[in-house]
Amino acid sequence: MIDKVLEILKSSSEPLKAGEIAEKAGIDKKEVDKAIKSLKAEEKIESPKRCYYSAK
């Protein structure tokens, strides 16, 4: 799950919102939110602007 979210962010040329990530991954937004929280804690992703995320 977390790997899939990170993979989508790495393949995107621009920052994505959680809803967009969920749509691309075909998973529930709540699961994406959990993955984002975890990835932020591990400092693998960043938030260049509010509610948008990108891989570091």
Rank of each mutant, 00 (worst) to 15 (best):
Ser47Asp: 03
Glu31Gln: 15
Tyr53Pro: 04
Glu7Pro: 08
Lys40Cys: 00
Ala18Asn: 04
Asp3Asn: 14
Lys44Thr: 06
Cys51Ala: 15
Cys51Gly: 07
Lys24Ala: 10
Gly26Val: 10
Glu14Trp: 10
Glu42Arg: 04
Val5Ser: 04
Gly26Phe: 05
Leu9Ala: 03
Tyr52Leu: 09
Ile27Asp: 05
Ile45Trp: 07
Lys24Thr: 03
Leu39Tyr: 04
Asp33Ala: 12
Ser38Phe: 09
Ala41Tyr: 11
Arg50Lys: 10
Ala35Gly: 04
Cys51Asp: 08
Lys10His: 07
Ile2Ser: 09
Asp33Leu: 14
Val5Asn: 03
Ile36Ser: 03
Ala41Arg: 08
Lys4Leu: 15
Met1Pro: 10
Pro48Asp: 12
Leu6Cys: 04
Glu31Gly: 11
Gly26Ala: 10
Val5Gln: 00
Glu43Gly: 11
Val5Ile: 14
Val32Ala: 07
Ala22Gln: 05
Gly26Ser: 09
Lys34Phe: 10
Ile27Gln: 09
Cys51Met: 15
Tyr53Lys: 05
Ser54Asn: 12
Pro15Tyr: 02
Val5Trp: 01
Ser38Asn: 14
Glu42Cys: 07
Ser13Thr: 08
Lys30Asn: 11
Asp3Cys: 07
Ser11Asp: 12
Lys29Met: 12
Ile21Asp: 00
Asp33Gly: 11
Lys24Pro: 01
Ser47Val: 04
Ala41Trp: 12
Ile8Ser: 02
Ala25Ser: 10
Glu31Thr: 13
Ser47Cys: 09
Ala41Asp: 15
Leu6His: 05
Ala35Val: 02
Glu46Lys: 12
Ile36Ala: 01
Glu46His: 13
Val5His: 05
Ala35Arg: 00
Tyr53Val: 01
Lys17Thr: 03
Glu43Asp: 15
Lys10Trp: 08
Ile36Cys: 02
Ile2Met: 09
Ile21Gly: 00
Met1Asn: 09
Glu20Lys: 03
Asp3Pro: 08
Ser47Gln: 13
Ala18Lys: 05
Ile36Leu: 14
Ser11Ile: 10
Ile21Tyr: 02
Glu43Gln: 14
Lys44Asn: 03
Lys56Met: 07
Ile27Leu: 07
Ala18Ile: 09
Lys44Met: 09
Ser11Val: 06
Asp28Leu: 11
Glu43Trp: 10
Tyr53Arg: 05
Met1Ser: 08
Glu43Cys: 06
Pro15Phe: 01
Pro15Ser: 12
Cys51Tyr: 00
Ser11Thr: 14
Ala35Asn: 01
Lys29Ser: 13
Ile36Asp: 05
Ser54Thr: 03
Lys49Glu: 06
Pro48Ala: 13
Leu6Gly: 07
Glu20Phe: 03
Met1Glu: 07
Ile21Lys: 01
Met1Leu: 07
Lys34Asn: 13
Ile36His: 01
Glu46Ala: 13
Met1Phe: 11
Gly19Phe: 06
Tyr53Asp: 08
Asp33Val: 10
Lys37Ile: 01
Lys10Cys: 04
Ala18Gly: 12
Pro48Asn: 13
Arg50Ser: 12
Ala35Trp: 01
Val5Arg: 00
Leu9Phe: 08
Glu42Trp: 07
Pro48Gly: 06
Lys29Val: 14
Ser54Tyr: 12
Leu39Ile: 03
Leu39Val: 00
Ser12Val: 04
Asp28Ser: 13
Ala55His: 03
Ala18Arg: 07
Lys30Arg: 15
Ser11Asn: 15
Lys17Ile: 09
Ala35Met: 04
